[in-house]
Design a protein around this nucleic acid. Structure first.
Lengths: 224, 224
DNA sequence: ACCTGAACACCGTTCAAGT
DNA sequence: ACCTGAACACCGTTCAAGT
């Protein structure tokens, strides 16, 4: 038996950037970005707030790191394969990651430091488009429209909370009675939401795929 | 001359929800959403922070109101006209409003109270699609894909700061040297950014219209 | 009815001091 | 090298008190 050094072996493992980022991600996932605080994060790690600054430069650096962890979860497309299938897979995988970490899309605004995982995914997207035969110019267009759509859809989905088509339908019905007074000026909203969504519901997955395929089909038509 | 009542006529006009919202919008436009603070907003209005609570319920209510002011600036489409032209105009006008108020898109996440101007624009979009001949189901799809694209594009544009194609090209060239060590693993990024964007630049307006027309053309093809 | 002073329970971050 | 206590300059919001 080794001599009992003044050991603190039951103590938490030492802090590291990795551990700080992981804990921050877990905290934001559970309680939302608004509740992510240097002080609360430190408490979660059994440490004082000021210790975090040994591993991240500041809160912005922390968020940059967290966001790149989200990008690390994305399945990058493989250049040279079936380009439409590969890009479809990447889009679905990106949306899934943004749904697992709902705080992410709201924090992406204004951020200019793209992390390595982000760059890796985008390199793969560009490579897939080039291998499919798109010109340099068209490759830029094609990535831009896909990214805007994917992030924008995720932004909208964090907007209204009901998740299942059925819940959505219930909310739609409720709103029809809540807003009753204003509705005389909103005939088309009444027709579409009251007459369709309120009974058919709103299926986020199907809705996402509709737009995604519309865009991918449109791009295919532009191939030389 | 009227009797000099104990007047404070040189005083600021009395507070009102309208005046509070306008001042908040001006402050956020000038200094960004991060600098919008109940205390700073009050100072701007020559008043103490606590007075604001007579006109807005809390900061969230303030942001709801500000966002609806942004929607009020959007040119709604006119149902029954040339549907593609009308929806194109609405998309361009939405992007312009989001560019004038760059804080807005980042604050839209998680918000579930849609204001009257928001509802009015969306009612007009739905009406335009219905008048064009889209089914109820397809109308929902069509609005969803357009909104996702418009908001997502705005989100991306607040990401990287350079505005003109030339500035963008300069940044692209700079990045090619900054990231030099990582670039051996990012061949496609080097090809596209280094070989195209670095000299042609990146034109946000043209880029936006490319994706917008791709989507509108795709929708047209789905008309009965 | 509208405004305010003081207070409460928080923030991110710096800095000198500890081990 | 890593951690911390105390402090600074802030936050949003409540509440009782003023006019």
């Amino acid at each position: 038996m080794p001599p009992a050094t003044k050991s603190r072996s039951t103590t938490r493992p030492p802090l590291s950037r990795e551990r700080v980022l992981r804990a921050a991600m877990a905290l934001a996932d559970e309680r939302g970005a608004g509740d992510l605080t240097m002080r609360k994060l430190a408490k979660e790690l059994g440490v004082e707030a000021m210790s975090l600054y040994n591993h991240v430069a500041n809160k912005d650096d922390l968020l940059d790191g967290m966001i790149d962890l989200v990008f690390a979860e994305i399945d990058p497309p493989v250049p040279g394969g079936d380009w439409k299938a590969e890009l479809r897979k990447r889009a679905v995988s990106t949306r899934a990651a943004l749904l697992r970490h709902r705080w992410a899309v709201g924090e992406m605004e204004g951020r200019s430091n793209h992390g390595p995982s982000n760059l890796k995914v985008h390199d793969a997207v560009l490579g897939t488009l080039r291998a499919a035969g798109f010109s340099l110019e068209m490759t830029v267009h094609a990535m831009s429209v896909q990214d805007a759509y994917i992030y924008g859809f995720a932004l909208q989905q964090t907007d209204m909370s009901p998740e299942s088509p059925e819940d959505f339908a219930a909310v739609a019905r409720q709103q029809m009675t809540d807003y009753a007074d204003a509705l005389s000026e909103l005939p088309h909203l009444v027709e579409v939401v009251g007459g369709h969504v309120a009974e058919a519901g709103y299926d986020y997955d199907a809705e996402f795929l509709f737009g995604l395929d519309l865009i991918l089909d449109g791009l295919e038509r532009l191939l030389p």
